[in-house]
Amino acid sequence: MTTFRSLAIPEVIEVVPNRFGDERGFFSETYNAATFARGGVECTWVQDNHSLSAEPGTVRGLHLQAPPAAQDKLIRVVRGAIFDVAVDVRAGSPTYGQWVGVELSSEQWNQLFVPKGFAHGFMTITPDAEVLYKVSALYSPEHEMAIRWDDPDIGIEWPRPLSSLSGKDAVASAFRKHQPVFRYQG
């Protein structure tokens, strides 16, 4: 049975699907709309993304899209391991500016659900980490936003030193300059 575990910010949910193995290998149902709805995750997924990061210590993020192109995300690792992070950017939220993180790996077979209203990013822990993630809205460059991965006001405790960062992420804005586009609905 697929398990669902809310993290310290309860809207962010770790998901662990069953994996059935035998001498041939394994089978796993990594997403089922009815199962996820029972676990508190109801989304219509419209795009799948796949990334490969060669070097450990590669950071991708912190990314989000503003409404009306805001995205829920469901992240999983098919090779290697990452440290995956969600930052609450919902104005008025009791956890505004706080972060939660979890190691996702092909070995643990876990996933992370990151809802709208959160910035998302990850750091690779292993070489050649491959990440697959579903999003609930199409990529929209005009709605794309980024917050510094190392912003001191957020204080993410990354598991290793940085080795690689995109030029776009290197010039991301500071959290205090981020204009809130999401409101907590509590």
Results as ranks from 00 to 15, higher is better:
80 G>V: 09
80 G>Y: 02
80 G>A: 10
80 G>D: 01
80 G>H: 02
80 G>S: 03
82 I>K: 07
82 I>G: 04
82 I>P: 10
83 F>N: 06
83 F>T: 12
83 F>P: 02
84 D>Y: 02
84 D>C: 10
85 V>E: 05
85 V>Y: 10
85 V>N: 07
86 A>H: 00
86 A>E: 02
86 A>Y: 00
86 A>D: 01
87 V>D: 10
88 D>C: 14
89 V>K: 08
89 V>A: 08
90 R>Y: 07
90 R>K: 10
90 R>C: 06
91 A>N: 15
92 G>P: 08
92 G>Y: 12
92 G>N: 10
92 G>W: 14
93 S>A: 06
93 S>Y: 05
93 S>C: 06
93 S>E: 06
93 S>P: 01
94 P>A: 09
95 T>L: 08
95 T>V: 10
95 T>A: 07
96 Y>F: 03
97 G>S: 04
97 G>N: 08
97 G>E: 00
97 G>D: 09
98 Q>M: 12
98 Q>P: 11
98 Q>V: 12
98 Q>N: 07
99 W>F: 02
100 V>R: 01
100 V>L: 05
100 V>T: 00
100 V>Q: 00
100 V>G: 07
101 G>V: 03
101 G>N: 01
102 V>G: 09
103 E>K: 09
103 E>C: 06
104 L>D: 00
104 L>C: 01
104 L>P: 03
104 L>A: 02
105 S>F: 12
105 S>P: 09
107 E>K: 15
107 E>N: 12
107 E>S: 09
107 E>T: 14
107 E>Q: 12
108 Q>N: 13
108 Q>I: 13
108 Q>Y: 13
108 Q>V: 15
109 W>G: 14
110 N>L: 02
111 Q>H: 01
111 Q>A: 01
111 Q>L: 00
112 L>G: 03
112 L>F: 04
113 F>P: 01
113 F>R: 01
113 F>G: 04
114 V>G: 07
115 P>R: 04
115 P>Y: 08
116 K>Q: 11
116 K>D: 14
116 K>W: 11
116 K>C: 11
116 K>H: 10
116 K>M: 13
116 K>E: 13
116 K>V: 09
116 K>I: 07
116 K>G: 10
117 G>K: 10
117 G>P: 04
